[in-house]
C-alpha cells in the first residue's frame, strides 16, 4: 500500500516493452467476445423463433432467461468452475449464456412488435409462413434484434474482463495482474483499453444498427 502512493498511473517504459502482451490481450478480448456473441446468436435464432411461435414455450423460455440473468456473472462463472475447470470452456459457457439470454429476449420481443395488421396483410397477399417470416416479420423485428446484438456485445466486453479470474480474461488479465502485483500500469492499461473497446463497439454497432435499418429512426 505504501508503494501505491509513489506508483505513477502509467509507466510508458513498461507499455513500450510490453506492446506484444497488450496486443495479445486485446486480440484475445475481441476473440472471446466475438465467439460468445456469434455462438449466442446462432443458438438464439432457433430458440427465439420457437419461443415466439409456440406460446406455451415462450413463458418458460423468457422466465428462465430472466432468472438466469439475475445471477451475477462472477457467481455464474464460479458455479461452472468445478465442472469445467479454470478454462476457456468455462469462460465461453458463461459468456454464451448471457449473450443467449439477451438475444433470445430481443428476438421474441422484436417479432412480437410486428403489428397484427402487417401480418394479416402479408397473409392476404399470399405469403407462406416461411416467406412471411423472412421477408416481412424479421425485417420489421431487425431494429430490436440489432439492439440486442449491440447490448450483448457491449455486455460481453465487460464480462470478459471478469473471466480473467478463471484464467481467460483478455484485457481483464492485465487488470488482474496489476491488482495482484500492486502495480498500476497494467491495471490502468487494461482498464482503459477495455472501456475504450466497449465504447467503440457501442458507438460502432449503433451506427451499423441505423445504417441497416434506416426506416426505424426519425
Amino acid at each position: 500500500m505504501l508503494l501505491a502512493a509513489q506508483d505513477p498511473w502509467i509507466r510508458w517504459d513498461w507499455v513500450q516493452s510490453h506492446t506484444q502482451r497488450i496486443t495479445d490481450a486485446t486480440v484475445q478480448h475481441i476473440e472471446l467476445t466475438a465467439i460468445a456473441v456469434g455462438l449466442g446468436f446462432l443458438l438464439a435464432v432457433p430458440i427465439g423463433l420457437f419461443a415466439w411461435r409456440y406460446r406455451k414455450g415462450r413463458g418458460a423460455v423468457l422466465s428462465v432467461a430472466g432468472a438466469l440473468y439475475t445471477i451475477p456473472s462472477l457467481a455464474l462463472f464460479a458455479l461452472l468452475v468445478p465442472y469445467t475447470g479454470l478454462t476457456f470452456v468455462t469462460a465461453e459457457i458463461g459468456l454464451v449464456s448471457y449473450t443467449l439470454l439477451i438475444l433470445v429476449r430481443n428476438i421474441v420481443v422484436g417479432l412480437d412488435g410486428v403489428p397484427a395488421e402487417v401480418r394479416d396483410a402479408a397473409r392476404g397477399m399470399g405469403f407462406r409462413t416461411g416467406a412471411q417470416l423472412l421477408r416481412v416479420e424479421l425485417p420489421l423485428a431487425l431494429p430490436v434484434i440489432m439492439a440486442g446484438v449491440r447490448i450483448a456485445t457491449v455486455t460481453t466486453i465487460g464480462l470478459v474482463t471478469i473471466t480473467a479470474l478463471i484464467g481467460e480474461g483478455g484485457l481483464g488479465q492485465l487488470i488482474l495482474d496489476g491488482l495482484v502485483r500492486d502495480f498500476r500500469t497494467p491495471l490502468v492499461v487494461g482498464g482503459v483499453l477495455s472501456i475504450a473497446l466497449a465504447i467503440l463497439c457501442d458507438v460502432g454497432l449503433g451506427f451499423l444498427q441505423r445504417a441497416i435499418t434506416p426506416w426505424s429512426h426519425a
Binding site: 465487460g158 464480462l159 474482463t161 484485457l171 487488470i175 482498464g191 477495455s194 472501456i195 466497449a198
Partner: peptide
C-alpha cells in the same frame, strides 16, 4: 451500460 463495471 457500455462501461465494464469491473474496470470502472
Amino acid at each position: 451500460r457500455a462501461l465494464p463495471s469491473f474496470a470502472i
